[in-house]
Design a protein around this nucleic acid. Sequence first.
DNA 1: GATGAATGAGGATTCATTCAT
DNA 2: CATGAATGAATCCTCATTCAT
Lengths: 225, 225, 225, 225
Amino acid sequence: MPLKRLFDTQVKATRAKRERRKEARPGELLQAALDLFVEKGFAATRSEEVAARAGVSKGTLFLYFPSKEELFKAVVRENISGRFSQWNDEFVQFSGSTADMLHTCMDIWWSRVGDTQASGISKLMLGEACNFPELAAFYRQEVVQPGHALLARIVQRGIDSGEFRAVDASQTAFSVVASMVFVMMQRHTGGVCVPADTSFDPVAFLHHQVDLMVRGLQAPPTEAS
Amino acid sequence: MPLKRLFDTQVKATRAKRERRKEARPGELLQAALDLFVEKGFAATRSEEVAARAGVSKGTLFLYFPSKEELFKAVVRENISGRFSQWNDEFVQFSGSTADMLHTCMDIWWSRVGDTQASGISKLMLGEACNFPELAAFYRQEVVQPGHALLARIVQRGIDSGEFRAVDASQTAFSVVASMVFVMMQRHTGGVCVPADTSFDPVAFLHHQVDLMVRGLQAPPTEAS
Amino acid sequence: MPLKRLFDTQVKATRAKRERRKEARPGELLQAALDLFVEKGFAATRSEEVAARAGVSKGTLFLYFPSKEELFKAVVRENISGRFSQWNDEFVQFSGSTADMLHTCMDIWWSRVGDTQASGISKLMLGEACNFPELAAFYRQEVVQPGHALLARIVQRGIDSGEFRAVDASQTAFSVVASMVFVMMQRHTGGVCVPADTSFDPVAFLHHQVDLMVRGLQAPPTEAS
Amino acid sequence: MPLKRLFDTQVKATRAKRERRKEARPGELLQAALDLFVEKGFAATRSEEVAARAGVSKGTLFLYFPSKEELFKAVVRENISGRFSQWNDEFVQFSGSTADMLHTCMDIWWSRVGDTQASGISKLMLGEACNFPELAAFYRQEVVQPGHALLARIVQRGIDSGEFRAVDASQTAFSVVASMVFVMMQRHTGGVCVPADTSFDPVAFLHHQVDLMVRGLQAPPTEAS
DNA sequence: GATGAATGAGGATTCATTCAT
DNA sequence: CATGAATGAATCCTCATTCAT
């Protein structure tokens, strides 16, 4: 094989590998950034660290994201995509009691969000909302709105079926959200939300909350019966 | 008027203006710091800004608070922890039902903390806890611990009086805290916690929450058995 | 006694006391400054500390000395005054051998300078000479010159009496000075001049030095004897 | 020339300039720091000045040295401690008399340290030791300890060979150090250690000192006994 | 004269961002 | 495209000095 061919081949191979990596780059960077932002917050995460964790150099990071702020936005956007439609479908088909549905809802949330880095993003979002208003708006629309709608729908189902009293479903949905927010905060602040000498089991808490809520919602025993 | 009196008065007058300012300084600085911390977060608030807003120079700030972290601690003490004992006292004397007590508790919290910049401090703390572990520990000890204890005590009172079922008082206290956290977050993130098209009335929410909780806690009717 | 008289008396008494103190002020400040400069060096000594140690307020210090630099100069000038003439006289009358004279010289230096804050001033002077050239010139003239002359005279006495070889008396005087400088440095630097695991006894060192020097200076045994 | 060779060469050429600069940086910075520390002292030298003199920006300095103190340590290592082992080796091989060895020692010290900015560092250290205890400890360990050990070894060699009386080698080593300290002080204080009207030749002084010392150390003639 | 509250220039250090290679 | 050396704006904190009282 002539030298030129060989060289060309090498170059191609090199380029091919590079391009494969190149396409993966943004994703690797976003993942690294996600990890670090969740772990240390926006301000405390250094650009260089993100690059290092993604296995590239500082300069490369800025090749893909024009600034740290844009990187942050990209991280949030990337990780906030709506898994709600899928989620919603699961609930549409649910056939048990609404009380069970709420417990199931918490379990699913915990396994898919709460116990995941995804909860870190939400916590981060809440922390930095003031500094990134457009991002906050985006989050509100993509996460908060559908989430709240889903929960309100569940509560409404309970009302419609006679399991629950006729309460304000939207207001009640916030009760569920509040529990989630509390758990996320607790998890991603090193436990500041709970006294140092008190243990906190998120799953137990979530079910305690649902239990309390369900009892509170259940229609009072009809006198006649 | 005897000469001595006159002399004394003059001395007092002479020192008065200065000292009045000196005594007012810490308060002015704390207020400025509170405003800015709540508005921009701890890390993003520059010491000099705090000084400027209090109408003094950079150096003066450090005359009263040895460091930015100590300033923050002082803000927390001034606005939150300092109020617990007084708060606690009010509840010790409370003579109504525990359900009423919880409603009152929310009202008081709302008027003294939630509807105040003090709630911004708590939100802030949650946002920056990871980056300032020492402050977090301080907050946990000075605010979270006594706050949680106070709420747990109220729940326990309900159990002891037979108003409530025998639940885990500590766990249940978190329900109340979660509501407060939710409200604080909503308030200090420009409303991200609630869908854009949905109105949110914090006071209504808090009472809705207490109402739900109280119903959920109330001992089931004993007659049937 | 009428009030006015009484008051006047008080005022006078107050004034008297004040004036007495006032006259003492510069001295007290200089003493405080001496202590601190010797202990911590020029840069590390804070003006306020000097004032505090002298029992006055920061402002008062600047009433007597226009700046920290001027204070330093005053301290050096104050503490460097020539005790050399007196010293010289003592030696003129000395009747023993020159070897003894050198040993005595060291003893006197040690008790009057080396073991005193006065040595701190010299050490300070050497450290800050570049930053205070005029002061250095003053020191050179008031301390170094007469000191060196005194020592050279002693060596010359030994030569003249035949105790010592005919060496360069001036050069040899530096040998003595070098020992003193070494001791001062060791004493006022926390011992940097000597390995950490080695003990250093200044007096023993000084006499060891003189002993070595004297032996080195002694005229070689005249062959004839 | 094969293509590969050519390509390699280009790559080398491409990186050459950058890397040459990068490799030169620490040296340039150390030189700048040495100059400035010697000229103005440690505390009075601003980091930015060092950078400026080395022709780089403030930030670059901290790219190579994590703090001003570490920079100082590096300067000491580069200019003093780093040279001891080499120095020591030279003496191990020395075959002449110990008297000659001491004279040689002074010559070497003078040419490598005394007549160099390295002596400025030592002088500096003595001036600032109190304020930077950590640096002082470092210097003591890295410079004073090995230096003193080296000198004591030389003296001991003379004793062992019968050239010198049986004196305390450690104590005697200080005699040599004292001479060096004196010379350094004289050199780096604008000459304060010597009267203004007296000339001072460091080399002559050093040899005068060694001469005196050697004579003082030489074993007394044994014939008489 | 004294006081001590207030000042603000100054200095070490960090880190997002740029750009020559 | 990728790199990583270089930059310099930004920020906390200190302390000599001033000046209203």
